[in-house]
């Protein structure tokens, strides 16, 4: 009951948030410089062509009317027609979304696989050389620009050593595990550094906590302590961190998908921006916002499920 009420409250709060989101998206795109009609018809188009396009897109209407149209259409699931793709924007986005979702989840999985064990090693060896070495390596990973790492991995592991394909996307789950390894790894290098940092800190915090000291004093085996207290706490903090980092992860796909020629929504966003594809920019920004909100909500739920104390707040 309590959690249902909590979800209801969260959903209710999302209404005004999304009203603001819609205003931001609408204004952003209306303020873009350059005539969208030129973007559609090209530099060679005649003035009459341009006027006709403006008329057709309703660009001559007052801003408020345009916003109302935008709002009502969006609520009906109509994001307009992509100028670039000559197809409904929603369809274009939905076509590309699974690729980005796969890439993001893949990157998260890799981050956990990399950061998890190393964080334990670092925390249990706190202050000694394994800790210092692990932290130093991740610190460097944190400071590396995604686009440069991507390029280096691509050049040496793919083109030279031929361990992986050079960019693009494959068919089916297992082929893509191989095909998308490098882009996922590129994103994971950054994410795993954040996860490692956070996980190490939370493990140390638990190890230092009084109840764990007490458990140890009672003679509970360290495996039990690790299992019961440390893992659970670590899980809560990692879920929270990953949930809150979803925006960063998505940002990472923008550059990574471009470098690795992965046809996802990240690359689509850049293509749409460079092509001044208004409906597509609007649709994509909205899609990102919806995704992030959904992940935030999900994070909250998982968190309250893992940590009953949270439900009370």
């Amino acid at each position: 009951m309590q959690s249902l009420a909590y979800i209801a409250k969260r959903l209710l709060l999302m209404v005004p948030t999304f009203a603001i989101v819609m205003v931001i998206i609408f204004l952003l795109v209306r303020l873009l410089p350059g005539d969208p009609a030129i973007a559609i018809a090209g530099d060679k188009a005649s003035d009459a062509d341009l006027a006709a396009i403006r008329e057709r897109l309703g660009l001559n209407e007052p801003l408020l009317v345009q916003f109302w149209l935008f709002l009502t259409n969006t609520l009906q699931g109509d994001l307009g027609r992509s100028i670039l793709m000559k197809a409904p924007a929603l369809g274009v986005i939905l076509d590309r979304l699974p690729t980005t979702a796969f890439l993001t989840l893949y990157a998260v999985t890799l981050s956990l696989l990399i950061a998890g064990p190393l964080a334990f090693v670092a925390a249990l060896n706190r202050g000694r050389w394994p800790d210092a070495a692990i932290r130093a390596v991740f610190q460097v990973g944190l400071s590396m620009p995604v686009f440069y790492i991507g390029l280096v991995l691509l050049t040496f592991l793919a083109a030279r050593a031929r361990l992986f394909p050079v960019g693009g996307i494959g068919h089916g789950f297992f082929e893509n595990l191989h095909q998308l390894f490098l882009p996922a790894m590129t994103i994971a290098l950054y994410t795993s550094a954040i996860v490692m940092r956070n996980l190490r800190a939370s493990i140390i915090e638990v190890l230092d906590a009084e109840y764990v000291q007490f458990a140890r004093a009672k003679g509970l085996s360290s495996r039990l302590i690790l299992g019961r207290h440390v893992l659970r706490n670590a899980l809560i903090s990692t879920v929270t961190l990953l949930g809150l980092s979803i925006g960063n992860l998505m940002s990472g796909t923008l550059v990574t998908e471009t470098v690795f020629a992965v046809p996802g929504v990240g690359r689509l966003m850049l293509e749409a921006i460079f092509a001044r594809d208004y409906p597509l920019i609007q649709g994509l920004t909205l899609t990102f916002a919806v995704l992030v909100s959904a992940v935030f909500l999900l994070t909250d739920l998982v968190q309250s499920w893992l940590d009953p104390r949270m439900r009370l707040t």
Partner: peptide, 10 residues
């Protein structure tokens, strides 16, 4: 809430 709903880079 609205601002952090957008990925920063986007």
């Amino acid at each position: 809430d609205a601002i952090i709903t957008f990925p920063f880079l986007v």
